[in-house]
Amino acid sequence: MRNILQFLIKYQFLLLFLLLETIAISLVIRYNYYHQISYLNSAQKWYASLSLKKEHARQYLKLKTLNDRLLIENERLRNELAYYQKKYTQYPQKAVHDSSDISYLTARVINCTVHLPYNYLTLDKGSDSGIQPNMAVISDQGIVGVVIATSKHFAIVMPVLNKKFKVSAKFKKNNYFGSFEWPGSNYRFGTLNDIPLHVPIKHGDTIVTSGYSNIFPEGIMIGVVEDYSISMGTFYSINVRLSTDFKNLYYVYLISNKKLLEQTTLENSVINE
């Protein structure tokens, strides 16, 4: 103990310097968006290749559960496909044209945190596979997040579990919409705000994306109503149980919307005037 104290006193100048620099640099990375992205890009390039190996091992052990989940999803998709095939037999051309605006890519999650106020995910595919910033990310269970940065072989996703994340969400049953965000504490729950008081709410109501944000298409599952309270006397603040379990997230789908650029350009041109 005395030796430690002596060491601390002897090198106090150097230690204090290192401490202050650590504080300063972490402030830089934490509060400056550009620095955050570069840090994640370079630091995670190394870390990601390591996590990739770890994930290989982990997924092998989880193969059975994963297979089950994929089977269930396949079954659902086949059913939907059959339904739409039947529905669109009269207009086969139109069906193909509509769906071609949106295309899906798959990727694997190789790194994911859930316990921080600003969490990020890393995917095992990057710009080489056609992933670009602002793509929506979903899983078979529901919404995941949005791509914020890509390198050649990796992509960083800002998930719902990030205090900067916001998405426009609505009730599936009656289309009342509000703004959905994550308060930063429990990884199972998010908050839906701005729902007016006359909307009837029940425990278990389904919340989906509204499609008003350019990134997410309409109708992607977010979660179900757990409980609700009145905030500021004018709106409900609704506690939503997220449908996506981020601690159990392996495969994700990325949605690329070919008309997104066209839409945002048009919208910005109006706003700028």
């Binding site: 310097f17 202050l20 620099e21 504080i23 300063a24 830089v28 990375i29 934490r30 400056n32």
Partner: peptide
């Protein structure tokens, strides 16, 4: 002196929206 300099940098950072850079 280190603490003074850190505090000085942090003050500048707060006003120029560059948190941490001047402090470092």
């Amino acid at each position: 002196m280190l603490l003074m300099a850190f505090f000085l940098g942090l003050t500048i950072d707060l006003f120029s929206n560059t948190l941490g850079m001047h402090a470092a």
